[in-house]
């Protein structure tokens, strides 16, 4: 089985549709996005995935990591981070989306993601 890893900038992801991402995922591609997805985007991709589930495609494994470390920030750092993210237009972090048939589990620690394949 040919496994591919594809990097998609967040800006491109916003221009394309999640259906494009799912099309790649169905072809055994692991997608890396250079941002943490917003909750609405995560639920939208889950909805689209459910619409695509078939005998051949059982779904996705998805996980996001936050580079900014919001949980450990004080109020000033949090405010600064909000401003930075407003300027760059995305939440600093990374998202991995891959086919569930290949990625069996993604274990998430606050600062790292571990893929079980």
């Amino acid at each position: 089985m040919n496994l591919k890893i594809k990097f998609i900038p967040y800006e491109k992801m916003k221009m394309d549709s999640f259906s494009d991402i799912l099309r790649d995922v169905k072809e055994n591609t692991i997608i890396l996005i250079d941002a943490k997805l917003k909750p609405e985007e995560e639920s939208e991709i889950i909805e689209k995935t459910m619409e695509s589930v078939s005998e051949k495609f059982s779904g996705i494994e998805l996980s996001s990591i936050d580079f900014a470390g919001e949980e450990e920030m004080n109020n000033f750092e949090r405010f600064k981070n909000i401003i930075i993210e407003r300027i760059i237009g995305k939440k600093r972090g990374m998202t991995i989306i891959g086919p569930a048939k290949i990625i069996h589990k993604i274990k998430k620690n606050p600062k790292e993601l571990l893929l079980y394949m």
């Binding site: 059982s58 779904g59 996705i60």
Partner: peptide, 25 residues
């Protein structure tokens, strides 16, 4: 329940027939 994956084959482990498993999925 919310899930990111649903594999009909998982239901077979619980004794469901293939058609039942597919329809459940």
């Amino acid at each position: 329940g919310i899930a990111t994956k649903i594999d009909f084959e998982d239901f077979l482990k619980f004794g469901l027939k293939k058609t039942e498993a597919k329809s459940r999925a």
